[in-house]
Amino acid sequence: MIRISNAEIWDLHCHFSGVDGKTVDERIAQLMVYADRMNVDRLVFFMGWPWSTNPDPDEFRRQNDQVIQALTHWQDRAFGFAYLNPMYVKESLEEIERCIANGPLVGIKLWVSRRCRDEEIDAIIKRTAELKGVIYQHTWLKVSGNRETESTPEDLAKLASRHPDVPLICGHTGGDWERGIRAIQNHPNVSIGIGGSDPTAGFVEMAVRELGAERILYGSDIGGRSFSSQLAKVFGADIPEAAKHLILGQNLKNMMTPILKAKEIQL
């Protein structure tokens, strides 16, 4: 077994795909079998299924209900973020109240329905930050062309400039990580999620060099991705063991601690 001794592994980025199962309870149980094999201690889930790139409020509420249901049997090791659609700001704010302020979820996931450079998104960021929730924004930089409404790391940098005191996560590091890291490196409130791209050697080394290990978060993007390919980015990187500890779990734990404390969730 390849592993970093005593490193606690927190996975930032999990979905209910990649396994069979008619119910979310069946699916999370199967995913936990793989998590056990790979010694992943804690997992953050967001979005239900089927996936919807531009869900209406009924649909994102339904998907968040799936996540809440999945957590009921796994409160000792699973967390959830609320999936929102910033095309519906009012309903997204109501969903934050329902799922985070008055529910069990501890952050938000913003996907591809609206670019995060748009100022209309600010109310969602502000309210989530007030609740100490974690904010995960998907980003990609596809040479073949993004969706028109899909955010890039440059978009996130603009958002970060407007909210310099709010921690933000640059999902996928833009996929094209050499450009993604550069796009956000001067925004110290932005951390990168390294999941959901190929295990290309040198990724984490560059990130540690340019951002520092404290701004890097392990996540897998299971079940479309494997735990293996994403853990390998950290296990295989030529960086100090202490940096691996931070990236594999400690950084996410630190980021989530304020909301976990506020919700009196014991670790």
Partner: peptide
């Protein structure tokens, strides 16, 4: 390897039973 971290393939053999 060396385009991918070699640990990726090794871990895949562990992730599957």
């Amino acid at each position: 390897f060396p385009f991918f971290y070699i640990e990726s393939a090794l871990l895949k053999m562990q992730e599957s039973e």
